[in-house]
């Protein structure tokens, strides 16, 4: 449908006012809410994600698209709740204990929301027990970030806390942050690693068997 393609295009361009207007128009035209989401907003974010991976755009472009997506979601969200549409997955995110840097974690949250995830933001300086609590509450995916080499060891401590609490098998764990690597993820037994916010979406989908 032409209007859905237009929504996707405007998400790519980061035109949040146009996306809001077009999304409202699509709703008014009686187009299926899930179609507006999938073929309009999510489709646009996916294009931006692909371009980011190919280095054709950089972070501010992704954020402009995320903002545009959000403006459309503000219209769709109440309607999605009414129709009982579920998010594609749930993830709890937090910067590990001792780490107070939240920018990277916030960006991952924004892009994951843009991709249709429900994100539970645990904040910064998150103690192991808080991550474990999220797992016990049924969140299937836990994301941990660390900016510094000095706070990175808390990722391993957290994984041990999941094991001690007997919930390690119930969750998948994804890690990221400037000093973190795939090798470190393998070393501490994390299930996934993402070097940036866009990759975090792909990795989250893979870990939850959504892709």
């Amino acid at each position: 449908m032409q209007i859905l393609e237009e929504i996707a295009r405007k998400v790519v361009d980061g035109g949040y006012l146009e996306v809001k207007e077009l999304t409202q128009s699509a709703v008014n035209q009686g187009i299926n809410i899930k179609d507006i989401l999938d073929q309009g907003l999510v489709a646009g974010m996916s294009v931006v994600g692909e371009r980011f991976k190919k280095n054709e755009v950089f972070l501010p472009n992704v954020l402009m698209a995320a903002r545009a997506m959000k403006s459309g979601m503000e219209i769709l969200e109440p309607l999605l709740i009414e129709t009982g549409t579920e998010p594609i997955g749930r993830i709890a995110l937090g910067a590990v204990q001792g780490d107070i840097h939240d920018i990277g974690k916030n960006l991952v949250a924004i892009v994951l929301k843009g991709a249709g995830f429900e994100v539970i933001d645990l904040g910064v300086n998150v103690p192991p027990q808080r991550f474990v609590k999220a797992a016990k509450e049924g969140v299937p995916l836990i994301g941990m970030s660390a900016l510094l080499g000095t706070t990175m060891p808390f990722m391993k401590i957290n994984i041990e806390a999941f094991e001690e609490a007997g919930v390690r098998d119930q969750v998948k764990i994804i890690i990221g942050g400037a000093v973190v690597s795939q090798a470190y993820a393998d070393q501490i037994g994390a299930d996934g690693y993402a070097p940036d916010a866009v990759s975090a979406v792909d990795e989250a989908k893979r870990l939850l068997s959504l892709s």
Partner: peptide, 20 residues
């Protein structure tokens, strides 16, 4: 600033990003 944001010189800057 652009380098820290991960910008590659081959990527054109949107006028909105230039403005910001």
């Amino acid at each position: 600033v652009l380098r820290l944001l991960g910008h590659s010189k081959s990527v054109p800057l949107l006028s909105e990003i230039e403005r910001i």
